[in-house]
Amino acid sequence: GATAVSEWTEYKTADGKTYYYNNRTEESTWEKPQELK
């Protein structure tokens, strides 16, 4: 299949934890999204 550009962006909180934000759905998660595995 075609490689889609991930909708997920990786961010870090002030205390250094990583989370992921989906630009399309406006969803955020602590877990690494399936698309990034």
Rank of each mutant, 00 (worst) to 15 (best):
residue 1 G to Q: 14
residue 30 W to Y: 11
residue 35 E to C: 04
residue 35 E to P: 08
residue 1 G to H: 14
residue 9 T to W: 09
residue 29 T to Y: 07
residue 18 T to Q: 04
residue 25 T to S: 05
residue 18 T to M: 06
residue 28 S to H: 13
residue 3 T to S: 13
residue 7 E to Q: 08
residue 18 T to F: 09
residue 32 K to G: 03
residue 1 G to V: 13
residue 21 Y to I: 07
residue 15 D to H: 04
residue 2 A to H: 14
residue 20 Y to P: 02
residue 11 Y to G: 05
residue 8 W to H: 00
residue 22 N to T: 00
residue 15 D to E: 09
residue 12 K to P: 03
residue 20 Y to W: 15
residue 27 E to T: 07
residue 37 K to W: 15
residue 22 N to A: 00
residue 8 W to D: 00
residue 1 G to S: 12
residue 30 W to L: 08
residue 10 E to F: 03
residue 9 T to I: 12
residue 36 L to W: 10
residue 27 E to Y: 05
residue 27 E to L: 07
residue 7 E to W: 06
residue 24 R to V: 15
residue 15 D to P: 00
residue 22 N to Y: 01
residue 30 W to S: 09
residue 2 A to C: 09
residue 2 A to I: 13
residue 34 Q to D: 15
residue 6 S to T: 12
residue 4 A to Q: 14
residue 29 T to I: 09
residue 8 W to R: 00
residue 29 T to P: 01
residue 1 G to D: 13
residue 5 V to Q: 14
residue 26 E to C: 12
residue 32 K to A: 06
residue 8 W to K: 00
residue 4 A to G: 10
residue 14 A to Q: 11
residue 15 D to W: 06
residue 37 K to P: 10
residue 7 E to S: 06
residue 21 Y to V: 10
residue 34 Q to N: 14
residue 28 S to P: 03
residue 33 P to V: 02
residue 27 E to S: 04
residue 24 R to G: 07
residue 22 N to P: 01
residue 6 S to E: 11
residue 1 G to F: 13
residue 30 W to Q: 07
residue 31 E to Q: 08
residue 21 Y to D: 03
residue 14 A to E: 11
residue 28 S to A: 11
residue 8 W to G: 01
residue 14 A to D: 10
residue 20 Y to A: 00
residue 11 Y to N: 05
residue 20 Y to F: 08
residue 24 R to S: 11
residue 36 L to S: 06
residue 15 D to C: 10
residue 24 R to Q: 11
residue 20 Y to H: 02
residue 23 N to D: 10
residue 22 N to L: 01
residue 28 S to E: 10
residue 16 G to I: 00
residue 14 A to S: 11
residue 12 K to A: 07
residue 4 A to D: 13
residue 34 Q to H: 12
residue 9 T to Y: 09
residue 5 V to L: 15
residue 36 L to G: 06
residue 19 Y to F: 13
residue 35 E to K: 04
residue 17 K to Y: 08
residue 31 E to T: 10
residue 22 N to E: 02
residue 9 T to F: 10
residue 8 W to Q: 01
residue 29 T to R: 08
residue 8 W to Y: 02
residue 12 K to T: 14
residue 25 T to N: 03
residue 3 T to M: 11
residue 3 T to K: 02
residue 24 R to E: 10
residue 21 Y to R: 05
residue 20 Y to R: 00
residue 31 E to H: 08
residue 32 K to S: 04
residue 3 T to E: 13
residue 31 E to S: 06
residue 37 K to F: 15
residue 4 A to E: 13
residue 5 V to G: 12
residue 36 L to H: 09
residue 19 Y to R: 04
residue 16 G to M: 01
residue 27 E to G: 03
residue 9 T to Q: 12
residue 27 E to P: 00
residue 11 Y to Q: 10
residue 14 A to H: 11
residue 25 T to K: 03
residue 31 E to N: 07
residue 12 K to H: 12
residue 33 P to S: 02
residue 12 K to W: 07
residue 10 E to W: 05
residue 14 A to I: 12
residue 4 A to I: 14
residue 11 Y to M: 15
residue 17 K to A: 06
residue 11 Y to K: 14
residue 23 N to W: 14
residue 18 T to C: 05
residue 18 T to V: 12
residue 13 T to D: 13
residue 1 G to L: 14
residue 12 K to S: 08
residue 6 S to H: 11
residue 18 T to N: 06
residue 7 E to G: 08
residue 33 P to M: 01
residue 10 E to R: 01
residue 3 T to R: 00
residue 34 Q to Y: 11
residue 11 Y to E: 07
residue 16 G to D: 04
residue 19 Y to M: 07
residue 16 G to F: 01
residue 35 E to G: 10
residue 8 W to F: 02
residue 33 P to E: 02
residue 37 K to N: 15
residue 36 L to N: 07
residue 11 Y to T: 05
residue 3 T to A: 13
residue 32 K to R: 10
residue 2 A to W: 13
residue 37 K to G: 15
residue 10 E to N: 03
residue 3 T to H: 14
residue 19 Y to Q: 04
residue 9 T to D: 06
residue 8 W to N: 00
residue 20 Y to I: 01
residue 23 N to I: 12
residue 9 T to K: 11
residue 11 Y to P: 00
residue 28 S to K: 15
residue 30 W to E: 07
residue 29 T to G: 03
residue 32 K to L: 10
residue 32 K to N: 05
residue 19 Y to I: 08
residue 31 E to W: 06
residue 36 L to T: 05
residue 35 E to V: 07
residue 7 E to H: 07
residue 7 E to R: 01
residue 11 Y to I: 14
residue 27 E to I: 07
residue 33 P to A: 01
residue 24 R to T: 13
residue 6 S to M: 09
residue 2 A to V: 13
residue 18 T to S: 11
residue 2 A to F: 12
residue 4 A to F: 09
residue 30 W to I: 07
residue 5 V to T: 13
residue 13 T to N: 09
residue 31 E to I: 10
residue 25 T to R: 02
residue 10 E to G: 01
residue 15 D to K: 02
residue 35 E to Y: 05
residue 28 S to Y: 15
residue 3 T to I: 14
residue 29 T to E: 04
residue 23 N to G: 08
residue 19 Y to W: 15
residue 10 E to K: 03
residue 13 T to C: 04
residue 9 T to G: 07
residue 16 G to H: 03
residue 36 L to K: 03
residue 17 K to D: 09
residue 19 Y to G: 05
residue 19 Y to T: 03
residue 17 K to I: 10
residue 10 E to T: 08
residue 13 T to S: 08
residue 10 E to Y: 03
